[in-house]
Simulated scan of single mutants.
Amino acid sequence: MTAQKVLPKKAYSISDAVKYIAGNYNINVSEHDLLEYIQNGELIASIYLDGRMNKIDSINRKNIPKNKELLLRNEEIFLQFSQSETNSKIKHLKEFESIRIDLKNIYFRLTVILDDRFYNDDYFSTNDNIKLYSGEIERFVNILFNGYFNLSREIFSPYNINELIEQGFIDEFSDITMSTGEDFYFHIPVCENRTELYLDDICILHNDLITFLELFSVIDKSYDQVEDINRLTSKLKEQESIIIEKDKKITELKSLSEKTLNPKTENSYLNIIAALLETTLENNVFGSQNKLIEHLSSNYQGYIGLSEANLRKQFAAAKQSLKNL
């Protein structure tokens, strides 16, 4: 009896990868075998993550419990990418004193918000290969990411595979890394943690699985892969068209939000800010404007427009607006 062929997907669980290899290439392989290949560095494993600059919010689209919180060392973030090869989008948002970088492909999305005080415009316009390191001076305002990220073989190394399968998880989560060669490299170090990485959440990307099979020359040459490849290509194009359509809607919404306020509306907003500021200070809620600014910039860190510098600028403009009445 001939085994049924399995349609390709963007990513497979380890058990689904076993079925894909068996069904499409008539090769007997077990989950134990694949984990050994991962442990030896011959097959790349990945994990789907959703997070931001200071922590990971979900693993494999499942929220992380508070007692297993997965924090990130945001002072050691490193990002390197080629603008031409990654089709990145970089925009200087001068009104918010920030630079926004958007990178995406079929496997992940990454948005980086930088403090523009640390970067000259010509750095991005004259260099194709961009290197960014957060350091300890808060160059990065925020990072948002979701998608598939590679797992280092080192996290599998300490384990006996039989014992690992019986346990069902790796004891600790490792640093986040995504690399597509010289064109893109992204690294966020994870704080010491007790967040288990369950084997059921680990996946293998289709491209990595095919690379693995080709590496060992185990692909059945009698099997015509063209149909599979065409089907996968068609599906990816369909998904990309959906993403493009959503991006257009997002761009339209952004263009509406970024339209310049007419002077009358802007003065109206400034007057409201000035009135609220005077009321707050008169009631001695914070004692002084400086303490109010410190409170807002500290408690709303990372929110666009609420940096200390921008608050001082807007408060000054608001006061001047009232004086001009």
Results as ranks from 00 to 15, higher is better:
Ser234Val: 03
Thr177Asn: 08
Thr126Ser: 12
Asn150Pro: 00
Asp200His: 10
Ser241Gly: 01
Ile165Val: 11
Asp201Leu: 04
Leu215Tyr: 10
Asp228Gly: 10
Ile242Gly: 03
Ser157Lys: 15
Asn162Asp: 06
Ser157Tyr: 13
Arg194His: 13
Asp201Lys: 04
Glu227His: 14
Thr195Cys: 14
Val218Met: 13
Ile170His: 03
Leu215Glu: 10
His206Lys: 11
Phe149Tyr: 13
Phe216His: 13
Asp200Tyr: 09
Phe156Pro: 02
Leu215Val: 02
His187Cys: 08
His187Phe: 14
Leu205Gly: 03
Gln239Pro: 00
Asp220Ala: 10
Arg153Glu: 14
Asn146Ala: 11
Tyr185Cys: 05
Lys237Ser: 05
Ser222Arg: 14
Asp200Gln: 11
Ile202Ser: 03
Thr211Cys: 05
Ile244Val: 13
Thr177Arg: 09
Tyr223Thr: 11
Glu196Met: 05
Lys237Ile: 08
Glu196His: 11
Asp228Val: 00
Phe145His: 04
Phe184Lys: 14
Val226Thr: 13
Phe149Cys: 02
Tyr133Thr: 08
Gln167Pro: 02
Pro158Met: 08
Arg194Asn: 15
Leu164Lys: 02
Thr180Val: 03
Thr195His: 08
Phe145Gln: 07
Asp128Gly: 09
Ile188His: 00
Ile188Trp: 00
Ile137Leu: 15
Val190Ala: 06
Ile170Pro: 02
Leu236Ile: 04
Ile188Met: 15
Tyr185Asp: 11
Tyr148Arg: 07
Thr180Met: 08
Asn230Gly: 02
Ile243Asn: 08
Lys235Asn: 09
Lys235Val: 01
Asn230Phe: 09
Phe140Pro: 00
Glu227Phe: 14
Met178Glu: 08
Asp208Arg: 07
Ser222Cys: 10
Ser241Asn: 11
Asn193Gln: 08
Phe145Gly: 01
Ile137Ser: 12
Val190Lys: 03
Glu166Asn: 13
Glu240Pro: 00
Asn230Ser: 05
Val141Arg: 15
Asp183Ile: 05
Ser134Lys: 01
Ile137Met: 13
Asn150Arg: 12
Asp220Ile: 07
Val218His: 01
Asn142Pro: 00
Tyr148Phe: 15
Gly168Phe: 10
Phe156Asn: 05
Ile165Asn: 07
Phe124Ile: 04
Ile219Asp: 03
Ile170Cys: 05
Glu227Met: 14
Phe118Tyr: 14
Asp183Trp: 05
Glu214Leu: 08
Leu215Arg: 15
Tyr198Ile: 01
Ser134Ala: 15
Arg153Thr: 13
Glu227Ile: 14
Leu199Phe: 07
Leu215Ser: 14
Glu163Leu: 08
Asp228Asn: 14
Asp175Trp: 03
Leu199Gly: 02
Thr195Arg: 12
Val226Ala: 07
Phe212Ser: 02
Leu164Val: 11
Pro189Phe: 13
Gly168Gln: 09
Asp201Gly: 01
Leu213Thr: 04
Asn142Gln: 12
Cys191Thr: 03
Ser234Asn: 12
Phe186Ser: 05
Tyr148Asp: 02
Ser125Asn: 11
Asn207Phe: 09
Phe173Ile: 08
Leu236Thr: 03
Asp175Ala: 12
Leu151Glu: 12
